[in-house]
């Protein structure tokens, strides 16, 4: 049997995902608008005091990013599962972990990267001091791929369930705790001119660890969901 070269299959899958995302670009905006709305609610809820907002800015932006990511995770594997694409991919002989990784990469590029790009606007709204802005962007750039990678495990576990969305958030939010702690503390430290490289370093190691481990867990979960 002439199995397709892994690289070619990986690229074919990425290209398909971008094409599908492009055809459904209106849907992609939903999590981003959600992100903007959530951040807007905070000044309305706690008052517009600039110092208060600046204090809670890293946490608010990061929690909003968490919520927006989880919102888009439910659909990560759902349509491929429901129309039979996933079972054909499993049977194609290609590594399922690699397929999971390709889907996750595509998910980050269309759902995670826009959050990173929007963060300066959010920082401005939340009155985050300029010293923290660069670190906020860096922390989101390192952290949102981790959100996608870990979230993909939850998405794969709940894909065969009719209403997996709520369960998905219950599964993945506890796993996001360390990331949230590290990222917000890095930004807060940068604002008050304290060292933050340690936190960012730990986040990078978290990214490497989840990059190597999470696709295998996702693959196992996908196989299980198909059984």
């Amino acid at each position: 049997m002439s199995k397709q070269a892994t690289g070619t299959a990986f690229v074919a899958l990425l290209r398909r995902d971008f094409l599908l995302a492009y055809r459904r670009r209106a849907e992609l905006l939903q999590p981003l608008v959600f992100l903007l709305v959530v951040v807007t609610l905070f000044p309305l809820g706690v008052g517009p005091s600039p110092t208060l907002l600046a204090n809670i800015a890293p946490g608010v932006i990061w929690i909003a990013a968490l919520l927006a990511t989880v919102l888009s995770l439910d659909s990560l594997f759902r349509s491929d599962f429901e129309d039979g694409t996933l079972e054909q991919m499993v049977l194609s002989g290609q590594s399922l972990a690699l397929i999971a990784l390709a889907r996750t990469v595509a998910h980050w590029l269309v759902a995670g990267l826009p959050i990173v790009l929007l963060s300066p606007l959010l920082a401005m709204w939340m009155n985050l001091p300029d010293e923290g802005l660069l670190i906020l962007i860096e922390s989101l750039a390192i952290g949102t791929p981790v959100l996608s990678l870990i979230g993909a495990i939850g998405g794969a576990l709940t894909v065969s369930l009719k209403r997996g969305g709520q369960l998905l958030s219950l599964l993945v939010f506890p796993l996001y705790v360390p990331l949230l702690i590290l990222a917000t503390s890095a930004v807060s430290s940068a604002v008050v001119d304290l060292p933050y490289t340690g936190q960012l370093g730990l986040m990078v190691s978290g990214l490497i660890a989840s990059l190597t481990l999470a696709p295998f867990a996702t693959a196992a979960a996908l196989k299980l969901s198909l059984s």
Binding site: I153, L157, L171, P174, L175, V177, P178, I181, L182, S185, G206, L213, A217, A220, A221, L224, S225
Partner: peptide, 24 residues
């Protein structure tokens, strides 16, 4: 089996959660 997989994923994270919360 799904619950088993979830507990493995959780257990890998548990020490990280524990230490990060301690540090926090």
């Amino acid at each position: 089996r799904a619950a088993s997989l979830m507990s493995i994923v959780g257990a890998i994270n548990l020490p990280i959660i524990y230490f990060s919360v301690e540090w926090w």
